[in-house]
Write a protein that binds this DNA or RNA. Sequence first.
DNA 1: TAGTGGTCTAGACCACTAT
DNA 2: TAGTGGTCTAGACCACTAG
Lengths: 229, 229
Amino acid sequence: MRISYRDVKAEILNRIRSNTWPLGTNLPGEIELAKEFGCARATMNRAMRDLVDDGILERKRKAGTKVKQSPVRQAQFSISIVREEVEQAGSVYSYSLIERELIPAPAWLRERIKVAKDAPILHLKCMHYSGKNPYQFEDRWINLDVVPAAREFDFEDVGPNEWLIQQIPFSTGELVFSATNAPESIARFLKAPVDTALFSVERTTWLEDKSVTYAQLYFARDHKMTTYI
Amino acid sequence: MRISYRDVKAEILNRIRSNTWPLGTNLPGEIELAKEFGCARATMNRAMRDLVDDGILERKRKAGTKVKQSPVRQAQFSISIVREEVEQAGSVYSYSLIERELIPAPAWLRERIKVAKDAPILHLKCMHYSGKNPYQFEDRWINLDVVPAAREFDFEDVGPNEWLIQQIPFSTGELVFSATNAPESIARFLKAPVDTALFSVERTTWLEDKSVTYAQLYFARDHKMTTYI
DNA sequence: TAGTGGTCTAGACCACTAT
DNA sequence: TAGTGGTCTAGACCACTAG
């Protein structure tokens, strides 16, 4: 049978786990290893690149490949549309707009996203539900300079999250996860006691070098985010 | 100049962003696209596989390649040793063992990890500090059937996290992120008021099909986990 | 400046799956 | 069962960087 890059990965991991190649070991070069494993150099290369992505090896030209001294595993999880999160859990999704206003960007927001001083910003508050249960409270700011169409959109039926993804798919951004004691203004909508610990996410989105939107998302109490590594 | 897979990726993203290929579009096959772009099929393949990893395309044999209807971005973050998290932030790391006991696994734990009914489990509580500030409270259970060496190790100077990574590098597992109101028993160590919202992580680790360890990690108040997408 | 990884190519065969 | 992606190979040249 021909050697697959998966076989190569598995064997390399075996050698690390079995201490044949302890943490920090310098591995032989691609060509030599490929010969030993009986595969092409490209196959060895793919296996090793994969292991770099997994946080297991380090490679540098000229210096060679070594087993990382301190394994840093890469955890991965997908950020999808709220609707789909809910529906994938087998529940019925619903959405409701709480507030919509057009105001100048407050100072604290201008520290987070780049936006002209007196330009009006669209501020939205909304709720996402899973069946009859609150699922997420969303507090969002949209830069109308970048997404002028938002000015005309009423967001009564479609959430800003879903709408923005259609407008600006695949933009880049930052995600910050943390825990927050629910203030009354949010606890009310999530039907939780004030000060309940809420899992929250701040999301900042850019399109090239322009700030598109900033959002604070608060999940209902006891929300969990799971990933496998 | 020769066409790089990065160029191909960039151009594909351009076409999606510029609506040349709207969400849901079926793309031409690899061979045809490679011809159009003037590169080898392997190059086109690598670009497209990368975009699948990024959550932008979907591919199925025979069916072909399409732009995902709902962009699901893959966020990534690295799970490292607590010591390194602290040191990378430029602080001095220190560690202290609070409690160490050998007891039969409680029932709730046996629901989470597979462990013999009357086998003794090593239970550890410890604190990690960043400079003089509390950084993380760790409540850990170690399966001695799988890691018998832990029975002899005192964990006075080295945390279980760090020790286990040396023993069983690159094991697989589950991570669950959530928010918790600090109970008194934990708040005390993190120097936070009772009920403060804490960012917390549960980690379950397997080695092949055996449960190695289960840990609940509670970060100090206002802890944030950041990632870029 | 030499050694190592990074990437491209052209060609081939295989595996899955829509129809 | 035919079409599309998945992967392997052998060979080549390039780019970065340790010594």
